[in-house]
Design a protein around this nucleic acid. Structure first.
Lengths: 245, 245
DNA sequence: AGCCTAGAGATTGTTCAACAATCCGGCAAG
DNA sequence: CTTGCCGGATTGTTGAACAATCTCTAGGCT
């Protein structure tokens, strides 16, 4: 456990790649351990729907399941609270938030502003970044299509989310990335109150591909306009499903 | 202290307004006391420059000053961390972040996107909100002018920030408000590395008034264009001051 | 002399147990 | 039916303790 990387070291070639791998491992180990690990587990439970909106998370109950102390658990709660996945009610506990139509509108407003601006802003730094970065988008589109073939619609949903996260990532703005992460997490919360995941996600795997092709063709303004309508349509669809629940 | 609101109750008229008032009071009382109170004090110390960027906040030291336990203090740290006012370094402690040019650019990019979009979006809901809400903007402009006369430039800065916060508030989007709050807090962090607060804030009290007048005249597109240049100019000014430090 | 290593001291990360403050349900009185 | 109150349960906060990690200094090696 002293110097684990010394053995498989190459002289010069691939050094950067190796460093990147180690950096990723370090980053993973650097996690504040207990609290963040507990938060990871809870995050999955929430985003995957095991904990439905409105559910209360009892402290004593979860300390036993997660095998962490109450203080550490509360720190995990705080982490998730600031991601929008939990809400605190003073002296009453933490709950999975129940979002309403108002929140759909609010989230989509912010989402439209950010995503459309990122795409439109791409024209400014065109040959600089795109090409190599667009691969990440393509990966997600492919993943979504594969998941659709396998009839795994929740997986289609995650690939969809990741697509949009990567889209924002094109701007290279750490704060936009952070805001988007929170935003998409909340959005997933909304998806769980909708019964039919297929009708919800299917239309957008094709639209994502179309959008990607516009980007690859460097038709940024066109892509921005397309994305704008895309998001308006998505908002309406969710609102409709919401009212019909 | 039992039922404080029973006296001034009206039959039917103004019931909604009354409920809103009570709701605001409740929200104010709901503060988690110890942890948030500690966070409030620290927040002021940071935004007012008492704790300069790069400073470390010792746990044991602060538990004595703030008279809270270490656990509670750490919860306050977490709160401020997620506001961007502190950063955690694992096993090393919490520090006031040292922002660089990169952060200036990042913050202003996000700021421009949001503020310009809010102003431009005003035309959609025109006669609905503005008039009564613009008063809040005018208040801040007046406050800035008064502070300038009193030669209190930090106060001018706060009024300036509040002006922009209220500007975002026109959209009525709770999430935009939250993002903006974090954003402006980080921005204040940057101001403290700049020596001359007067040169920094003075030009914008006039521009704020001009912008406000455009809004009152309902020339929203014109206002948006003005604001866009306003922010570009402000960004350049800060970058220049930054490079000359 | 210069560099590397080891260890002491200090700081943070996490746990535990206890007490205070608050909320929720049901029950009795009007 | 409403109002007020009580007891049980849950959360909010504290203090002390121990483990893990970092920093810095002193000493040994080449």
């Amino acid at each position: 456990m002293s110097t684990p990387g010394a053995e498989g070291m190459q002289r010069e070639t691939g050094r950067q790649a190796w460093l990147r791998t180690v950096a990723a491992d370090v980053a993973r180990l650097d996690r504040s351990s207990s609290a963040e690990r507990a938060a990871d587990i809870l995050r999955r439970s929430i985003t995957e729907g095991a904990l439905p909106p409105g559910a209360q998370l009892s402290e004593v109950e979860l300390t036993e399941v997660l095998e962490v102390s109450r203080n550490t658990l509360r720190e995990a709660f705080r982490l998730l609270t600031h991601e929008g996945l939990l809400v605190y009610k003073l002296h009453r506990g933490v709950f999975v938030p129940e979002l309403g139509e108002h929140d759909v509108i609010d989230l989509y407003r912010l989402r439209r502003v950010l995503e459309v601006d990122v795409v439109r802003g791409l024209t400014a730094l065109d040959p600089e970044v795109p090409a190599e970065r667009l691969v990440l988008l393509r990966d997600e589109v492919d993943a979504a299509e594969a998941a659709a073939k396998a009839d795994d619609w929740p997986a289609v949903g995650t690939a969809n989310m990741r697509f949009h996260q990567q889209l924002i990532g094109l701007a290279g703005s750490s704060r936009m990335n952070a805001v988007t992460g929170r935003l998409l997490a909340e959005l997933r919360l909304l998806f769980h109150v909708i019964a039919a995941p297929r009708e919800l996600h299917e239309p957008y795997i094709g639209r994502n591909r179309a959008l990607l092709e516009l980007l690859e063709a460097r038709k940024y303004d066109e892509a921005a306009a397309d994305l704008h309508e895309y998001l308006l349509d998505s908002e309406q669809r969710i609102l409709a499903a919401f009212r019909a629940r």
